[in-house]
C-alpha cells in the first residue's frame, strides 16, 4: 500500500485541526514534517523500522492538544527537507486561510445546517482543489 501523499496529509491534518475547539501549538505541528524528514536521513542502518515509532513519539511528546494533526503529518514519507519545508508552510497557510474564511462565513451567516464543521470541511475541500498545483512542486 502506498503511504499517504504529503499534500493529502496536509489537508487531513488541517481538517483535524480546524474541527478542534482548543487547538494548540501549530508551530510545533508544522515542525513535525521537518523532524520526520530529518529522521529519515538518520544513519540507522538495518534499524530503519525504528524511524516511524520514534517520529510518532517525538510528535506526540509535548503537546497533547496537537497530537492529532502532528501524527497525521508524521505519516507521509518526505523525500527531502525541501518537501518537508513545503508541507510545513502549506499546513500553516492552509489553516490560516481556512480560519479567515471560517470567520467570514460566520459573519455572513451560513445556511443553518451548514454552520460550523460542514462549512469548514467545504472550505478545506475548495482549498484542496485550488492549491493542488502546490502538490506538484
Amino acid at each position: 500500500m502506498m503511504p499517504i501523499a504529503v499534500y493529502d496529509a496536509v489537508f487531513v491534518a488541517a481538517a483535524v485541526t480546524l474541527v478542534s475547539d482548543r487547538r494548540g501549538r501549530l508551530g510545533w505541528v508544522a515542525l513535525v514534517p521537518l523532524i520526520a524528514a530529518a529522521a529519515a536521513l538518520a544513519p540507522l542502518g538495518d534499524h530503519r523500522y525504528l524511524i516511524a515509532p520514534l517520529v510518532a513519539l517525538v510528535a506526540t511528546l509535548p503537546p497533547v492538544r496537537a497530537a492529532a494533526p502532528a501524527l497525521v503529518l508524521a505519516a507521509p514519507a518526505y523525500g527531502s527537507l525541501r518537501a518537508a519545508l513545503l508541507a510545513a508552510a502549506l499546513f500553516l497557510v492552509t489553516v490560516w486561510l481556512a480560519d479567515g474564511l471560517d470567520r467570514r462565513v460566520e459573519q455572513r451567516g451560513a445556511a443553518p445546517s451548514w454552520r460550523g464543521a460542514p462549512a469548514r470541511f467545504l472550505v478545506l475541500a475548495v482549498l484542496y482543489a485550488a492549491l493542488l498545483p502546490v502538490g506538484h512542486l
Binding site: V105, R108, A110, A111, W114, P118
Partner: peptide
C-alpha cells in the same frame, strides 16, 4: 449546490 447554497445564498459565498 456547493458554491452558493451552503453559504447562505446570494451575497454570502466566499468563493
Amino acid at each position: 449546490g456547493l458554491g452558493k447554497a451552503p453559504w447562505g445564498g446570494l451575497g454570502k459565498n466566499p468563493f
